[in-house]
Design a protein around this nucleic acid. Structure first.
Lengths: 231, 231
DNA sequence: CCAAAAGTGTTTGTCATACACCCATGA
DNA sequence: TCATGGGTGTATGACAAACACTTTTGG
């Protein structure tokens, strides 16, 4: 009996789903394509992996080249390899996600001209994206919804100092449901991973809220003790 | 500015981690390799994906060809793409796992001669596997440990009729810790996804235990209501 | 009658949930 | 003084955890 399955070669890429939080909205980082196939379309930042490059480093590099963003921890979540997902032929993509502190003032600057521009777009109003990127995005949403239920990844999205209400709104956005204010505060404060600051909100025309910081040390001490959030 | 990242082509494969339960042990399905690189070594069943073949179908086909097992639902869990994971060059692999009802009488017969044989091996006694398959296996273990905590996938491993004690032993094996008998039974029966049969165990030299079946209908009705199992 | 596993309840504490009013601030 | 969000407590029910003895059966 001989080998009946020929090896074949495929191009492969990495795509990044980067979430940010701004103006009370969850946003995702997109680029406008400047290359053949879907030219001018919006897409997730993604590109070809290099010959001598691991997947994780490729994801970091590609995100940087397309958006100028660096040093962002990303987590691989799924590989997409449908036969017809790419018009050029067989292209498998490995998808990563990240949640970051969005700085609205920081300009996003593609370093290579594969992207015309990079920008933040609200997740509730996404048009159809290039390739199967809509599907990739949906899968990443599922993933972070599940993940936020057992790990406090929401902090990654907030500014360093934040109010409990901001934190709650963020959870509500991600989980897509209302949470009870008193219960939310009780629970969050109970975890002991928030540090209350002496500082208050400024410039609001109502009672100023206390600011908090996420206490990474205490969180680390909880090891992988997983936090849960069902309602 | 010109494109600074050359596309390159890579071979890619699928690897399968299939868990079974037999003789009171958790086992994993291995093959003995019959090809260059790690010839004669034990490895996870895995092979090249074809040109016109999606990842999921590839996983099904490859498992069949290497072990003779068919119609097994597998779930993708991670892509491994370290630069030096394969001696032949850059080979990315997409890994799948499955949990199945192991039939110790059914002979495992590779259909193509890439594998000399396929066999079940206890997971607690694994030698070093070919390529990075040890690492892939470890990751799959993490994955099923997490998954069993919120979905009753353990049933997939058991014979159709089983006793509560068998089920508990299986949970203990996977989670690698002792569970309390009374609490375990209470919780399991409470979920309402077990159907008590009129039948008892036979041929044991002690009090015969009641047999149960997993009730897929009732489980489906719980939608994705997730079951939890911490202790 | 012995060995081996089956089967069975109660108590305690923690945590999720539901729910409504007063407080502080700036305009 | 009003509008706006900030901030607070209690009662109920569900569920996790800890814990030990009696029952059944075959050999």
């Amino acid at each position: 009996m001989q080998e009946i399955v020929p090896k074949f070669e495929s191009i492969f890429t990495v795509d990044c789903v980067v979430f940010g939080f701004d103006e009370g909205e969850l946003k995702v980082l997109l680029i406008e394509r400047n290359e053949e196939d879907y030219t001018g379309w919006w897409a997730l930042p993604g590109y070809y992996v290099q010959q001598d490059e691991g997947l994780d480093p490729a994801a970091e590099r590609i995100l940087y080249e397309l958006t100028g963003l660096r040093d962002i921890y990303m987590e691989q979540f799924y590989a997409f390899g449908d036969v017809d997902r790419h018009p050029q032929g067989r292209v498998i993509t490995v998808a990563y996600f990240a949640m970051i502190r969005l700085n609205p003032l920081k300009e996003l600057k593609p370093v290579i001209n594969y992207a015309r521009k990079a920008f933040w777009h609200p997740i509730n109003d996404l048009p159809k994206l290039a390739f199967d990127h809509t599907q990739i995005f949906e899968k990443s949403l599922e993933k972070i919804r599940r993940k936020i239920s057992y790990q406090p990844i929401a902090f990654e999205l907030l500014p360093e100092k934040f109010t409990l209400t901001q934190l709650q709104h963020l959870y509500e956005l991600i989980l897509n449901k209302k949470l009870d204010k008193r219960n939310f505060r009780k629970k969050m404060l109970n975890y002991g991973i928030l540090k209350e600051l002496d500082e208050k909100q400024r410039g609001v025309s109502y009672r100023a809220a206390t600011l908090y910081k996420f206490d990474r040390r205490k969180y680390a001490r909880l090891f992988q003790k997983e936090l849960s959030f069902s309602k």
